Simulated assay, not measured.
Amino acid sequence: MTQGRKTVTVIQGDYAVSADPNVMMSTVLGSCVAVCLFDPKAGVGGMNHFLLATAGTTESDDLKYGVNAMELLINRVLKAGGQRSHLQAKLFGGARMTEHARDIGATNATFALDFLAREGIACLSQSLGGVSARRIQFIPSTGAARQMQVSGALPDVAPIKPPAPQPADITLF
């Protein structure tokens, strides 16, 4: 899937769109959600990565909010040659990354599913929820996607011991 492809990294609060068959999009998600949207007939698609479903009481055009990230992704895929009636989606992310706070991941996942349903866009597959981070790779021209779970704690690393002091070669009087 990755061989000979140019990788475009989609960071938090961003999106990318391409019709180039040699482009692969990649992101890492925790409680955030990525929507991989594509038109298989036109061979164009894109990915977004949003942190929160909505801005709450204040209006914002910030892409960290799903409502804005979704609108821009759909519009850019259409502008690049996709047709609304052919759009399909794959969803990833929405993990619960901490036990001690509100489940932002579940809120993000519900928002994305509801948004696609309201817009009449088919969700072909989803990997939402859980407690592990995910690395996503997506080929926007075909809709092929791969997920790799990032699980477990970081391995214990032995502390680095400083070198022992060496005897001085200098004689002091």
Rank of each mutant, 00 (worst) to 15 (best):
A42I: 06
D62F: 06
S85N: 13
I121F: 02
Q149I: 06
G143T: 01
T9H: 06
T27L: 00
S18Q: 08
N48F: 02
L91A: 09
Q137A: 00
T107I: 15
C36Y: 00
L87G: 01
T171I: 15
R134I: 09
Q126G: 07
P163A: 14
N68K: 12
C123F: 05
A168M: 08
K41T: 11
A164T: 10
G81M: 12
T171P: 00
M70E: 14
L154D: 09
P159K: 07
T110H: 13
Q83I: 08
P167G: 03
L116G: 07
L29P: 03
S85K: 15
T142V: 09
T110R: 14
I104E: 08
K90W: 00
F115P: 00
G152K: 09
A42H: 12
A80V: 08
A153F: 11
N75T: 12
L52S: 10
E59F: 04
T27C: 05
V150I: 15
L73S: 07
L116N: 08
T9S: 09
R76K: 15
L72D: 11
A42F: 11
V17A: 06
G93P: 05
G152V: 09
E119F: 01
I170H: 12
L78V: 07
P167R: 11
G66I: 05
I74S: 04
A106E: 10
F111L: 09
C36T: 02
S127F: 02
A168L: 11
G130R: 03
R5G: 01
G94W: 10
L52N: 02
E99H: 10
G56A: 07
M148N: 05
M47D: 02
S60H: 06
L51E: 14
A164N: 12
S85E: 15
L87Q: 05
T2N: 10
K41H: 13
L154V: 08
G93H: 05
V23I: 15
N68M: 13
S60V: 10
E99T: 04
D39F: 09
H100C: 04
Y15K: 05
R118W: 03
I121D: 06
F138C: 00
A55F: 03
P40H: 07
A53Y: 06
P163Q: 12
V67P: 00
T9W: 08
T9D: 10
I74T: 13
R134K: 15
S132Q: 13
D169W: 13
T110Q: 15
S18H: 07
A133G: 15
D39P: 09
Y15D: 01
M1A: 11
S127L: 13
F50E: 02
C32A: 13
R146H: 06
Q88V: 04
Q3G: 04
P159C: 04
A106M: 08
D169Y: 09
R84M: 09
A133F: 04
I121W: 02
V67Q: 13
L78N: 11
V10C: 03
G152W: 12
L73I: 06
Q137G: 00
A55E: 09
S141R: 10
Q147T: 07
H100R: 14
S85C: 04
A144V: 00
E119Y: 06
R134D: 01
A101Y: 08
